[in-house]
Amino acid sequence: MADLSKAGTEYAPMTWEVERGKIRELAQAIGDPNPVYLDKNAAIQAGYKDTPATPTFLTVPMMWSGQMPAIINDLKINFMMVLHGEEEYEYYQLMYPGDVITGTPKITKMEEKTSKSGSKMDLVSMEVLYTNQRGEKVAKARSLLIERK
């Protein structure tokens, strides 16, 4: 059961280098044939500096850095009972290979809710602001996690 007293917690920043191969790998796993994500020359022809990170790329640093599982542990959420309720991104600029991004996760809200059927669940809202190696804002991610009880 989630520890509701953790609302407002800000976690240590996580830093991650964006790599061309990882952008391509994520696009391939999705099955996205768009050449701008797969081939640098195609991306340049389409007006990009390099292959841009895909719209949902920011899931990669959260998971591969171990940050997301660590936060779930710290919030005392049962990993096996957690559902992803919502995900939202605001994009301030594109991310390219070689960018070093830093994400600072914050728990913005935690609350217990009772569904219409009477089952209880904890809702956890998290926000991560990402900046790049120049200190510029890159994106903001908002997630809603649902722990069934």
Partner: peptide, 11 residues
């Protein structure tokens, strides 16, 4: 993608 500003979903 260069024109995308926001993208949000509910599962």
């Amino acid at each position: 993608q260069k024109f995308l500003k926001k993208f949000g979903v509910r599962f």
